[in-house]
Amino acid sequence: METKHSFIIVDDSELDRFIIRKTIERFDKSLHIETYQSAEHALEVIRENKDGGSKLPAIILLDIHIPIMNGFQFIEEFEKLEPNIRDNYTIVILSILLSVKNPVGIGNKLKKEIVNSFIDKPLTLEKLTSLLTQIRSAQKIR
C-alpha cells in the first residue's frame, strides 16, 4: 500500500489557504491537513512535533512571501532541527515564482535535500497529482 502523507500549509493569504485545502481534499478527502498563517507558528508546532500526534510523513506546502518570518527564514530554522524530526517532513515551495529556471530569484541558495520542489501558484489538481507521484516514486527507490 502507498504511504499517505499529511499536509501542512504555510501561507498568509486566506484565499490561497482555502484553495490549497480544497484542492487537496478533492485529491483525497481523507488526508490530514493543517494550515498556518505564520511560519513561526508552523515551525513551533513542528519543533515540538505536536502536529496531531500523527507519525505520518508530512508535506509542507510553503509560501515564500510571508510577513515577519518568510519562507526562506523558515527553511533556515528548519535546517537546525534534529534529523529525526526533519526526516518526517518534505518541504515543497508553493509560491509566486518569477521564473522556473531560477525560482524566486535565489533558487541556488536552497539546498536540494531540504526543498523537494517548487510549484508556481495557483495549486491545481494536476500539479498536486504530479507532485505526489514524484514524491511517492522517490520514496520507493529509497
Binding site: S13, D16, I19, T23, R26, I96, L98, G105, T124
Partner: peptide, 25 residues
C-alpha cells in the same frame, strides 16, 4: 519589479485558483 510581480500576481493567482476550483464546488 519584484513587488509588482508578487503583489499583483499574488491576488490574481488566488483568484485564478478560485475560479478553477469553482467548477468543482
Amino acid at each position: 519589479a519584484y513587488s509588482v510581480s508578487h503583489d499583483i500576481r499574488g491576488p490574481l493567482s488566488g483568484i485564478l485558483g478560485a475560479t478553477n476550483l469553482a467548477r468543482e464546488i
